[in-house]
Design a binder for these strands. Structure first.
Lengths: 196, 196
DNA sequence: AGATCCATGTAAGACGTTACATGATTTG
DNA sequence: CAAATCATGTAACGTCTTACATGGATCT
């Protein structure tokens, strides 16, 4: 339900835009970090939206060449809001960082430290980006709410990292650098026989 | 880099398992909510891993029929950790809830309220799941860290929702139920002409 | 006996990204 | 003038999900 067509409609809810503009909006607009799409999916999506009447095209030949400006129609607006008001798919948080941290006990301590440093940098930057966005364009109550929620959770994450990083980093120090390395659990060991 | 093969290896880091077991582990193990995979991707992935020597198969005929138990090899273990220690892709948070909330100003107030209620339910349940997991199986320092981080951010999110929901819900009340409805911004209006 | 869980696998189809092909305009 | 940005589109490719095909075992 939240496919590229929906993303395009979302971008067009605010203003008329070209495919190129939409990509930028998704990169550095209010949905930044939430959703994104490539040209290879945006252009076909816009074509389909136009066929369906959810969007209209206007060829802007402002001196230069062909630039297609898309605008959402009343039908498109209605469709977009209907979908948003309908049942939404589950949220998904894909974090290679957290995934890796699950195996912190088996990773070299320097690596774990570097990962946490990197994550702190990362989340700090995201907070800064949100702050900038909130500063420049005000946006509606919805946007303010989303930005506030983002900031609150990111801050909580940062806080946790700084307060508890010592615990994971210590865990890796209490064993050989490469992890449990050559050792396997006895049950696995028994099951395998000669592995390599 | 974090494809289905990596997920299988991750599941096999702890214990020997069948494809079926791995799916369950991803559903209700420590990586719950982080990553998942379907049978249609798990079985082919295990076959490839076996070809590559990162995993070995053992046919368990414990009375019943064919059940294939996979175990990670030393090579597989090394490969898994090498990838984890290498450059990781960006994290992605796909939240249909937050996406929808961006347009809270255009949605019916009951809908916004329902969405927030639903999200509170959702996050509360996730915290409960983590608590249960932390209670039953202790896990290493890495797992404790990830669970703690998850709990901390979820709690911060819940806290924000409860403290600031009035703001978004109020915004929708100060205008007709369907949103800005028939009105469009003057610039868009001008650009379109007769839309429908 | 019927439902549900355990268990594996394949094929088709959806969806999206990357790379390619092309070219104008602006900026340093 | 070279490099970056603006701008659109297609084709190949990869990856994952859904649905299908199959059947034993366990629980009610």
């Amino acid at each position: 339900m939240l496919d590229v067509k929906m993303l395009c409609l979302a971008a067009l809810m605010g203003r008329e835009a070209s495919g190129y503009d939409i990509k930028k909006e998704l990169e550095r607009g209010s949905a930044t970090g939430l959703y994104e799409a490539s040209f290879g999916s945006i252009y076909p999506a816009l074509a389909r939206l136009a066929e369906e009447g959810n969007v209209i095209v206007r060829n802007e030949g402002n001196g230069r060449r062909d630039k297609k400006l898309y605008a959402i129609t009343a039908a498109g607006r209605a469709h977009f809001l209907k979908v948003l008001a309908g049942p939404l798919p589950d949220e998904k948080y894909r974090s290679p960082f957290l995934f890796a941290m699950l195996f912190a006990d088996d990773l070299p301590p320097e690596r774990v430290r570097a990962m946490i440093d990197h994550q702190i940098e990362n989340w700090s930057m995201k907070i800064r980006l949100i702050d900038e966005m909130t500063g420049t364009c005000s946006g509606g109550a919805g946007e303010r709410f989303v930005n506030g929620l983002g900031t609150a959770t990111l801050r909580a994450g940062l806080d946790f990292l700084q307060r508890h990083r010592a615990e994971v980093e210590a865990a890796t120090l209490s064993r050989p650098p490469v992890g449990r390395a050559p050792v396997q659990t006895s049950s696995t060991q028994a099951a395998i026989g000669a592995v390599e």
